[in-house]
Design a protein around this nucleic acid. Structure first.
Lengths: 338, 338
DNA sequence: CTAGCATACTAAAAGCCTTTAGTAAACTAT
DNA sequence: ATAGTTTACTAAAGGCTTTTAGTATGCTAG
């Protein structure tokens, strides 16, 4: 039993397929009698235009894609994603679009891209000139870069380096001499220009503060691998097990800081008395954690929202508006610092 | 400048469109020389099969849809979504599918459904016989029900009532006589059979425990509206402002409990000494909260994963395997209870 | 009474791909 | 040398819709 098609509805209603199409798309061209009749038949048969055929013709699927650099199940382990999706989603909600998450297929992001029925992409964590992005250029799929370098495409970034510098400087001003930096690996780092991915940007900020305060960078950073709570726990445990005993920890993401907090508690370490901990992002959970996480706030939802707005603008205008936005960060002191 | 089509590649490579199609889909039918030549031309021109055309023909888009009962930006305010998406995503990752989130368009879920280029839906929080679901039946779009009643379609549920009863009974056993219940409103509740949506199921469990312990149900529940941290804060504030002074609070979702915790702290209330708090779900944040949330665990990722597996099975088999799974819940005592 | 114009509708093309059925050439077996 | 098979490829149909260009009807205006 195949799907009901426009032809069947047309036949049953005694009109042409065109009339059925008009009923749904431009009812003003038809007499109201005809519209009523067609709608009745469509309702009875359970007909609705095939979205694929529609998209094929109009090359508008009504879908915004988020291009994630990692597997979906890994991505949403990072608490950054939920508020970001909320931001993108708020635009989708208003414009009646759907939201699609695309990740590498068989290890190849290009395959994921070419198979995805979307109108445009929000590219997360890759620069414009990244190999993974070039298929988008060549296929003329509109896109917006988020957390990556861009000169020709629109982009949304935050003050990664400045925010990190500020947090580190405040910490070091309290006289710490052994500070552990816990960082994560960009899933695309083997290809990425190291100065453009956000982990590197933040690290650069930390290093500048270290240098200014005459604190040795030393063995830093401890690599957590994936940006998740578990990653933070592992990084802490690893550093501790090789005898590292810092008096403060700078985490390049809140997710890592949560892991550090959990692991430190397990070791009976008092925070912030014995150990100060600082995060980055200010995800919604930061104010819930125990103790509440001092961190660098970036406006995550705003970022998602702006990215979606730039994308829809590019979609409508046909032209990339080439707008490169950098959002400010803000120091948020809570109770993991003194 | 239009997109590169199969015809153009064929012309440039000096072969038929069929040969180009075979190059991508059934290369074994072609000599390796031809495949190489076509691939070279395709690469040069930046060609990839148009996903809409492909989906139109094969009626396989390679996309799993999650049908959310609420706006995307509201949905992801509930910390339940991230782990659920991780579960669904793990199947997508393995099978090279993308994941789409569909919410009501112009207030109508049916519009969202008919416009979405997906192969099947995971329906969240609606029963099989819900009006929003009937378009799926009629269009013969495969779907799986999650957190809703189903007899003909496959479904995944948890022991909502049993888990809630257990949590409430443990609490009441400690002699509380004034217990506030904070619940949320199902976004579809105006249409939903009240005994099938999860808030009602959980409430039923609470009520049973109240009755067994001879505790009055009274003014309960306090409605938080949206299932979010902010909703929990509001519900707490509202109850407090009308003079309610319970010694324990049962929250129908962890998100609400987090809000309660935050609001209680603001009022200087000590937890668990002055007030015990219990959640439901055991979202990842529960072990981070301050104090750590005692709650009823449901295997959220597992639930998402199973739903996706049932859906892909239905997609492949053509037939609904009609499997109705109910997962167990588990009491997780942490430090918001004594 | 005829030219001109809305109105209501339709035929056919376009959009891009996959697949079925089929052809031509080269090879194998007898 | 002939029939049969395999290999490598193509023409054309099919999938479903939207849109453009056009037809038939009835109406208005001069």
């Amino acid at each position: 039993m195949p799907r009901v098609t426009i032809a069947e509805v047309a036949r049953m209603a005694g009109v042409s397929p065109t009339a059925v199409s008009f009923t749904f798309n431009r009812p003003s061209e038809l007499s109201s009698d005809t519209v009523r009749k067609v709608l009745a038949v469509a309702e009875e048969l359970g007909y609705a235009p095939n979205p694929h055929a529609k998209a094929l013709h109009s090359s508008r699927a009504g879908v915004l894609g988020i291009l994630a650099p990692e597997a979906i199940s890994d991505a949403f382990a990072n608490p950054f994603y939920a508020p970001f999706v909320r931001g993108v989603g708020s635009v989708c909600d208003e414009m009646n679009l759907s939201l699609m998450v695309v990740s590498p297929h068989e290890g190849s992001l290009e395959k994921g891209i070419t198979k995805a029925p979307v109108d445009g992409f929000i590219v997360l964590g890759a620069s414009e000139n990244h190999p993974d992005v070039s298929p988008l250029y060549r296929r003329r799929v509109p896109f917006v870069i988020v957390d990556g370098e861009a000169n020709n495409a629109p982009s949304v970034n935050i003050e990664d380096e400045g925010g990190a510098y500020d947090a580190a400087a405040r910490l070091l001003a309290r006289g710490h001499t052994d500070v552990l930096v816990v960082s994560f690996l960009n899933p695309r780092s083997h290809l990425e220009d190291p100065y453009h991915d956000i982990a590197s940007r933040r690290q650069k900020g930390y290093m500048r503060a270290f240098a200014e305060h005459g604190v040795e960078w030393g063995e830093n950073p401890s690599e957590a691998g994936q940006c998740s709570i578990e990653g933070g726990e592992r990084a802490f445990e690893e550093a501790w097990s090789v005898g590292r005993r810092p008096t403060a920890i700078l985490c390049a993401a809140d997710a890592l800081a949560f892991g550090v907090l959990l692991a430190a508690e397990k070791r009976g370490i008092h925070i912030p008395e014995d150990l100060e901990v600082v995060g980055f992002d200010d995800v919604p959970e930061a104010r819930l954690s125990r103790p509440a996480l001092s961190t660098v706030r970036q406006p995550i939802r705003e970022k998602g929202r702006l990215a979606a707005e730039l994308l829809t603008a590019a979609l409508d205008g046909g032209e990339h508006p080439r707008q490169n936005i950098t959002l400010p960060t803000e120091w948020v002191p809570r109770t993991t610092t003194r």
